[in-house]
Design a protein around this nucleic acid. Structure first.
Lengths: 197, 197
DNA sequence: CTTGAAGATGAATGTCGGTTCCGTTTCTGC
DNA sequence: GCAGAAACGGAACCGACATTCATCTTCAAG
């Protein structure tokens, strides 16, 4: 499985029939639940069952499993975008940036499907989505603020965010007794803070 | 697949026949190559072919694919142990620690199989092996030195190392154009350095 | 050199899980 | 209401792999 970026035909090609729209939502919800439960390898049958729907219906909405995953990921990125907007409202430039990172990590922690995304999805999916959804720009703004204020190290770049989130996600994915992703993120954030000198 | 810790019957149960020992080595080598090439999902047939051997032979040496993977991982941990010993010889406490981390990451970078291990193997495998091989103790010594010298943050623990390596490995695993695991590790190491105040 | 045990072989087996297909059911515009 | 399009259902299909097994080969002790 290699979740490439299949543009799911969500665009209002034709206004979906009422029941179809309902099912579509159910499927996405069930997929999220199922991915969370199984830790990344949910089965189409299970997703269909969870949505109270036949497999065929799942395939009517998403031509392939990858397409379904891609849609989940896209939705998550839209959440990231919202978080970024919120962060830009925060006064303190460091807290704005750090809070953004923490909030995103928190979202990942609550949805194993997203961790799955960072760990298993095609390498280009995350960067591409970040660009397409505008997340990259927003992140850049947060970074610029931090760097202008001298609280964020100057050599940090927007592209690094994905890499770091990926690393943090992998820590939470394992959930080994001693592994605490919040510690991990804390270490990294401390590393990103500008050094006094 | 869930590489639990199957103690492969390497122990000199009975001195393997000469050709058998040779094949065993070939299989391990081929497995490493094959995992590296395929990015973590090597097939038994491919491994057998790479070793110039029939599949049955692979199964004669390793009862299951997991057992084979476990053996590869165990070997890698022995390499880590060697690195740790070398690091303990280094004068500067910070360089000893940081060099240890960098060297291990480097080893991972050269062998996708190891990245696979950190990312896919059962959550308990790494911690368990770290204990069994003595790596945990050695790491602790490196950490103690750093903390006594005041160059390593006081709240860092040996258990954190696996988590961090896991994160770094996940970054290199994707190898997205903009993702550079050395940057990632650099950020983290900066975060681990004791703050002046 | 013989011989039997250890080892090797690879086609065949079994399972798992994504995807397809077509008969049936449910909407919705008229 | 009705017709026809849209959607649904889920058994069946199919490829991909890990694993097995009956048979053949090679080593090494005596």
């Amino acid at each position: 499985m290699n979740a490439s970026l299949q543009t799911v035909s969500t665009p209002a090609d034709r206004p979906l029939r009422a029941d179809a729209r309902r099912n579509r939502e159910r499927i996405l919800a069930a997929a999220q639940v199922e991915f969370a439960r199984s830790g990344g390898d949910a089965q189409m049958d299970a997703i269909a069952a969870g949505a109270g729907v036949g497999v065929g219906t799942v395939y009517r909405h998403f031509p392939t499993k990858d397409a379904l995953v891609a849609q989940l990921i896209r939705a998550r990125f839209e959440q990231f975008v919202a978080t970024a907007h919120a962060a830009l409202e925060v006064e303190d430039p460091w807290e704005a940036f750090a809070g953004f990172m923490r909030a995103n990590a928190q979202h990942c922690a609550q949805d194993v499907g997203t961790q799955f995304m960072f760990l298993q999805a095609g390498p280009e999916l995350a960067p591409t989505l970040a660009r397409e959804t505008g997340l990259l720009d927003l992140s850049q703004q947060l970074i610029d603020r931090g760097q202008r204020a001298g609280v964020l190290r100057a050599d940090f770049a927007a592209d690094d965010i994905g890499m770091i989130m990926c690393g943090v996600a992998s820590a939470m994915h394992h959930g080994s007794a001693h592994w605490d992703w919040q510690r991990h993120l804390g270490f990294v954030l401390d590393g990103l803070r500008a050094r006094p000198a």
